[in-house]
Design a protein around this nucleic acid. Structure first.
Lengths: 192, 192, 192, 192
DNA sequence: TATGAATGAGTATTCATTCAT
DNA sequence: CATGAATGAATACTCATTCAT
């Protein structure tokens, strides 16, 4: 088996284990066994447990960003673009449960990785912030960054709520999230 | 030193350590030493590491809820009530950094405690959901719960962003969060 | 409550605990609590866990020896004396289960106490050896001591078997033991 | 060094330690060190302290039973068979002191293992009981089981006495035990 | 390349024992 | 006389990591 394939396979297994028991409780023994590889192999490929986690975050985060960036809306109206991205985001959550749990679960605050995840979150927030700044919304730059983060957090939280209510359809959730984002982007003017 | 005082002292120290290195990496040895107590004392008071963590979450969560519930707005207009609560919330984050980090950091997804924290989050969300259902907003019940979670997540995320930008004033952040909440509560009608 | 009474009470409780979980697993905390006394009291009376155990063995061993020595047979024929003693022995096992378990259970080989129990066993064996030497049985002194130990062991083992078969009557067991002892005392001549 | 050899070596060392200080006081640290192995190895091979003890009992008990079963008497007369078995038994005690002490020392009553040892003792007793039932001795079944246990106990006790009197020859002790067993098997008829 | 075998360093937890009051 | 509060020292067990082959 070529190295590249093995690496991917190990990452898949590692993701399952990390998502199930968390970083600290995951054992290299288990990961190696589930992957059908000897432990020294895992070390040869990823250097250390931290390295393995790092690699997994990188891959999952990259996947997520790719999906967001490559979302293909039917037309270029802002609302369509937004809806397409939200749909992609929720698709990732649905199809890639392990990645989601790892990226936005305990990792987000587990010390050596918090920064890496924060970066990812900031990059996602950026895509939103740009939409804000591009509109005529009257949020100043610091405000727009903060608001963007708030919206990302709203999405995370909504996604987690969804995981606890799997009977709700993805489109429904997307609609809610969309309306939240739009309301916020439309701004406080609504409270006359 | 009477038992009650020591217990509080140990909880304080435990919170610092948990906030700094997380549950798994926290060592009972370190906690005991920082508290100026022998390890068996910690066990006598809290039974186990899990018990200690549990006790800390309970205390911090209770503090936060108390603040939210006891917020005293200048008048009873919804906007005033909301602003008062948001201010209390941010005050908790500011004054009680350890508690905040523990409650909304890795704990939230560390296995035996996730449920305890989820309960807290849900209770906070409830206070928001009630505001939604009481208004004339046209969100159906499942929607209102989901939206409430989204708003809580927005607040969490905003608070975390704030911790990374300490030069921004609390009132400013409160204003932003307020406008987000109000925009969402005002609902999708704004997107004419 | 006078000291003497308390001491006896503590010994009673200690015996129960020792019999139930063994010396090592017995905790001074539990003993003190069950006795309704504070731990320092136990230490004041018995110096240490070892001291407590020692005291218990002494008391239980003394009880057993007393019974054996004070057995009152209906007449002075050797068979009657023997039967009376065996009956007393089994009565002790039946009525004083804790004492029996402690004396002839793990203690017998738990290091610091083995000797103490060995002494007790030897003194019991002595009473048998004397019966051998007093007869006309043709056992030389070393043999008589060895045979006496064997008979004591037979009794122990029989008593333990009895504890596992509580439906068998005491008299029946006594009869069996008696016949074993008598057969052995009658000696190898039986194997014509 | 291949795994199987190491396992046996660790068991040897463990037996020494268990025989010397008993199960509870034995420390895995000491066993590992004496075996010239690191502690994790011991755990890798035997899972736990209990597992190690269990394995040792199993091995020692198996050895003892094998010897009893495989005893090869010069001819098939009952007396010869009996003598051969007794000799094998005493040989085990002599050559395999640790095993003997562990099997018939505190283990016999140390909670999680008592049953395992009781089983062994019962299987030994069975071999004797069969001799009783096969003879024309007039012991009823419950009696024969009880008597068999008594004889096993006599042997244990005699063996322990022997350990305290190492100057006595093995043949001599065997002779004594043989005469005890035969006298009992010959039955109470001798007491005319 | 690949692994079976091995370990150093650490962790939670327990318990007999003792002061200060 | 009596105890609540406190601890030193030890123990079983785990795990990321690395050689020797």
């Amino acid at each position: 088996m070529p190295r590249e394939r093995r690496e991917q396979l190990i990452l898949d297994v590692a993701g399952q284990v990390f998502a199930r028991v968390g970083y600290h409780s995951a054992s290299m023994d288990e990961i190696a066994e589930l992957a059908g590889v000897s432990k020294p192999m895992v070390y040869a490929y990823f250097e250390s447990k931290e390295g393995l986690y790092h690699a997994y975050i990188e891959r999952a985060g990259g996947d997520l960003l790719d999906r967001l960036v490559n979302a293909r809306p039917p037309d270029q109206r802002p609302a369509s673009v937004l809806r397409a991205r939200i749909t992609e985001f929720l698709a990732f959550v649905e199809e890639h449960g392990d990645g989601w749990k790892v990226l936005f679960g305990e990792v987000a605050s587990t010390r050596p990785f918090a920064e890496q995840v924060a970066t990812l979150r900031t990059r996602i927030a950026e895509t939103i912030r740009r939409m804000i700044d591009d509109g005529e919304l009257g949020f100043d730059p610091p405000a727009s960054a903060a608001i963007a983060h708030a919206l990302v957090g709203a999405g995370e939280s909504l996604a987690n709520w969804w995981l606890d209510h799997p009977d709700v359809g993805r489109d429904q959730v997307a609609e809610w999230y969309l309306s939240v984002v739009q309301a916020v982007l439309a701004g406080p003017r609504s409270q006359r």
